[in-house]
Structures are given as C-alpha cells and as structure tokens.
Design a protein around this nucleic acid. Structure first.
Lengths: 150, 150
DNA sequence: ACAACTATGCAATAGTATTGCATAGATCTG
DNA sequence: CAGATCTATGCAATACTATTGCATAGTTGT
C-alpha cells in the first residue's frame, strides 16, 4: 500500500467508470500494471464492490430520516432480534448499534411521510422490543459522500 | 421508467462492474438496447455516479461515530457557516441539517480515538458556533447499504 | 388512419481489458 | 556481500466488450 495505491483508490472512490488506461496515465503506470493493482484491491477486499449511486430525489425517495431507538429489553439476544427485523426493510439503508443514550440508529430513505408512517408501524409495533424512538428528518443534506479518506 | 428500468437500476446498485451483455440477458434485452437505457440513466442523472465502495476496516478507518450537534446561534447564516466548516473534513462523510432536538447530524469515519479527538478539536473549537455535541460510537454495523429501494 | 416519435435487435466497428513474457528492482539468506 | 528468490513493471499481442448505424416494430398524438 504505497502512494500510488492510495491515489488509485481515491480515483476509484470518486469515479469507478473511468478507463483503466486513463487512470494508469494519471498515476504514472502502464495500463497492465495499473490493472493488476486494481485487481489486487478487489481480491484482497479493500474494494468491497463497484456500485451505481442513484440520485435519491430522482429515484423517488426524497425523504430521509435518522431514527434513534431505545430498546425495551437489552442484551445480545433481544438486540439481535430487533436488528434482524429492521435490516430486512429496504428503506432502512443503515442500521447501527451504538453507544450513548440510545441503542440503535437507523438511516431511512422513503418517498414521503405516508411511506415513513407505514414503515414505523411495521418496525415499532408492540412486541418488537422498542421502548421509544426519536425521529430526526433531514432538512438539508450538506454532504453525502461514499469515499473513505485515505 | 418501467419494470426493466427498475430491474436494471437494482442490478447496477448491487454490482456496477458486470458486463452490459450479462445484464442485458438478465433483464431480457439486446445488449444495445440495454446499454442505451443505462446511458439514459446517466444523462438524466438518475444514476449520479459509479464508485468503488471500500471496506472501512481494511482501509484503516475502522471507527465510525454519529455526532449530533446543537448550534449556539441558529438561523441560516450561522448554520451555513458551521456546515461549510465540517464538509471540508474528509472524515465527515455525511452532514445533515435535521429537525428535532439537535440541529446537525454528522457521520464520521476515523482510524481511531486519537483521530476522532483531533477532529473534534478542529470542528468544535471556540468560535465554531457549537453549543453542545453528543457522540454515538458505532459498536456494530448491522446494515450499511448504498442501494435505494425502487 | 396517418404521421411523428421512440425503443428495439442485428451486425459491423471501435475501444478496452487482459494475458504472456522478458526485465528490473527489492528482499531475503547464508 | 553475492547469490537467489520474489514481486512489480512495461510492452505488445490477443480476447473481450462497448458502441454505432441502420432497418423495423411499437406507441402516441392529431
């Protein structure tokens, strides 16, 4: 993992649709050498996957909410049961167990309030082990990057 | 935007490194027709970009934190000034103005606590208009998708 | 019912990734 | 320190893939 590797990963995190020859020139390598490094990234798992990032508004999912959840019963078993429930929902894009006041944080993408309401009914119904939940609706997205700093 | 479009966008959100011919067969189109649809996604902006998603741990940024921020002085001018400050930090991957108890939510990726500490010193110093901030460290990532449900 | 527009498939072409091979550099070993 | 081993590199040939022109079929609007 040298400077060229970091530069390449940076380029790929910004735009993975560029041609290999193009990126090779930018980092100062021959196309074949460049390609072999990129392939190594994939085989070692540093690059997890190559994906298309959609524009949320144009994809009809313009509403984003951050939901913090306080569980009723804590402990491994109960926590896992709730998480297993939420990760099945496509609208729940991220789900984290966290330290602090609450136990779980969910990042949710929906079309509108109606869809959000329906989701909450499914996730926070009686028996889903949720004591309370707090919703923060995203008013403005100042930054939404996928690139990890290197 | 028909069923084939949604199927294609789904495939591209999962794996954008597949060959066009491959995906064309899966959705039941000729390669040329499939390619034209994908190109249209890009030109209309439904597809924002194609990127490499890195494995955070293997990229040396294994620590993630969700930071909620309460501003000292509210209002457009002051809020924007703080956001302009935070979006410059590569470690701040997402930054949102939100409704609710706090004003801003940051999603932060760092290597370790030392790096997090240094970041906080830069972001929450005197004069940055922050009244309080609350940090939730991610203990377990149950789900971290980039795909928007269609 | 006709015209205009759009999407499709085929086949030829252009562009790009991929591989084998010889070489240079780095690292290890006795 | 010399020799051996391993790894990365560049070049050039090859294989693969995207891309385009064109004729056709389907759809929409008047």
């Amino acid at each position: 993992m040298d400077g060229i590797d970091r530069k390449l990963l940076g380029l790929l995190q910004e735009d993975a649709s560029r041609t290999n020859a193009d990126m090779a020139e930018e980092v100062g390598l021959a196309p074949s050498s460049c390609l072999r490094r990129i392939r190594r990234f994939k085989s070692t798992g540093i690059i997890d996957r190559i994906v298309a990032i959609l524009n949320p508004a144009k994809a009809g999912k313009g509403t984003k909410a951050i939901v913090t959840v306080e569980l009723e019963r804590h402990g491994e078993q109960h926590a896992r049961r709730f998480l297993d429930l939420v990760i099945k929902e496509p609208a729940v894009m991220q789900a984290y167990s966290v330290s602090g006041e609450t136990d779980v944080v969910l990042m949710v993408r929906v079309a509108d309030m109606e869809e959000f309401d329906a989701l909450c009914l499914r996730l926070f119904q009686d028996g889903s082990n949720v004591a309370r939940y707090y919703t923060m609706f995203v008013i403005r997205t100042a930054k939404e990057a996928t690139a990890i700093p290197l």
